[in-house]
């Protein structure tokens, strides 16, 4: 008996050793030992911030992470603060960052010593949409009204948006080029600030993401003029797209997660798995339809390739803006 028992134990031991040895990349092998810091590349109250906090809440509600996720806003300098911070966190397994398009534009515009190729891609959760907004009290009802009003203002039309060189300013530059107009671009810290200033009448228009302006829209304070999407957005069925009005303007904002350089592959697998479960959750599915987001999950090498391709596109876009900054 004793002999068999020992042999069985040995076999079991051997088997388990093989298992451990064979599958080092299994998500179960690694789990966070302390709270995970979720760096947000934007200020409080904006689209990126709200979304990151939503992710955190779903992760917590569905128990997708063994340790709490703590969101930290580092929105200074169009996200440069966050990028710099992530760079200094090389090899850290307990930091992830929620990105937006400034992930490529900020290092392109400013030499902050950050190369995004070094970071570890985790997962792309969604593509966000852009809509042209005006205050509901204004006389502008259509895109033609808008273009006419901007032209009449002679360059004093105040377009509010996030930091110079960030998405909102790129979209603004696209509008200026397409319609041959000139606006005064006023940068704010986050999309929430922009929406509030548009409602308060301190700026004349914005290109907020739907989620940033939705509350004010439902309260009847803001009016959508046109969407920068190929198809109409479900929550604004009466708002035409630029495309159907004959202007092929389409621009997306990616919402992804990345990690510092040299994160342990097992940790990368853990987070990838966590976000995959998140993407499949019911809350996330409902949110994307309600807030006019395109859920579009992408991970690993494919995501890195996407990042680099987008970076090249934005380099061209910024180059064509020229005097933009």
């Amino acid at each position: 008996m004793g002999y068999i028992f020992t042999r069985r134990t040995l076999m079991a031991l051997a088997a388990s050793t093989t298992l451990i040895g064979a599958a080092p990349a299994l998500a179960e092998d690694w789990s966070p030992q302390k709270p995970v810091e979720m760096v947000i590349m934007a200020g409080q109250g904006g689209g990126a911030d709200r979304l990151a906090r939503l992710f955190q809440s779903i992760i917590q509600q569905e128990n997708l992470s063994k340790m709490p996720i703590l969101p930290v806003n580092k929105g200074g300098g169009s996200g440069a603060e966050a990028l710099r911070y992530l760079k200094d966190k090389g090899g850290d397994n307990h930091t992830i960052m929620a990105t937006l398009n400034s992930y490529y534009t900020t290092p392109l515009r400013t030499d902050i010593g950050v190369n995004i190729e070094d970071f570890t891609p985790i997962a792309r959760m969604a593509l966000d949409t852009f809509v042209l907004w005006v205050n509901a009290d204004s006389d502008i009802q259509t895109l033609d009204d808008y273009v006419a009003a901007v032209k009449e203002s002679g360059g004093t039309w105040k377009m509010g948006g996030t930091g110079t060189g960030q998405e909102d300013s790129l979209v603004t530059a696209m509008l200026e080029k397409e319609f041959d107009i000139k606006v005064t671009y006023v940068p704010f810290k986050g999309g929430g600030d922009v929406a509030k200033n548009l409602v308060g009448g301190h700026i004349d228009s914005s290109v907020n993401n739907p989620s940033e302006a939705l509350g004010f829209y439902q309260a009847g304070k803001l009016r959508p003029i046109a969407a920068l999407t190929p198809e109409r957005i479900e929550v604004f069925p009466d708002t035409p797209t630029m495309t159907e009005l004959g202007h092929g303007l389409v621009y997306w904002m990616q919402r992804s997660f990345v990690a510092p350089k040299d994160m342990d592959p097992a940790a990368v697998a853990y987070y990838t798995d966590m976000f995959e479960k998140l993407a499949a959750s019911e809350e996330w599915q409902t949110y994307t339809t309600e807030k006019a987001l395109m859920a579009d999950f992408l991970t690993g090498e494919a995501l890195q390739a996407y990042f680099l391709e987008e970076r090249d596109k934005h380099a061209d876009l910024l180059g064509s803006m020229g005097e933009g900054s």
């Binding site: 580092k74 200074g76 300098g77 169009s78 996200g79 440069a80 603060e81 710099r84 911070y85 760079k87 200094d88 900020t106 515009r109 400013t110 902050i112 930091g163 110079t164 060189g165 940068p187 810290k189 900054s325």
Partner: peptide
């Protein structure tokens, strides 16, 4: 000290210490 809010340019990064980037 740190990164300019509006343009994103680094300012007053003494001795090039990365710690000053966050102000």
């Amino acid at each position: 000290v740190g990164l300019d809010l509006i343009s994103g340019q680094p300012r007053l990064i003494f001795f090039d210490l990365p710690g000053f980037y966050s102000g």
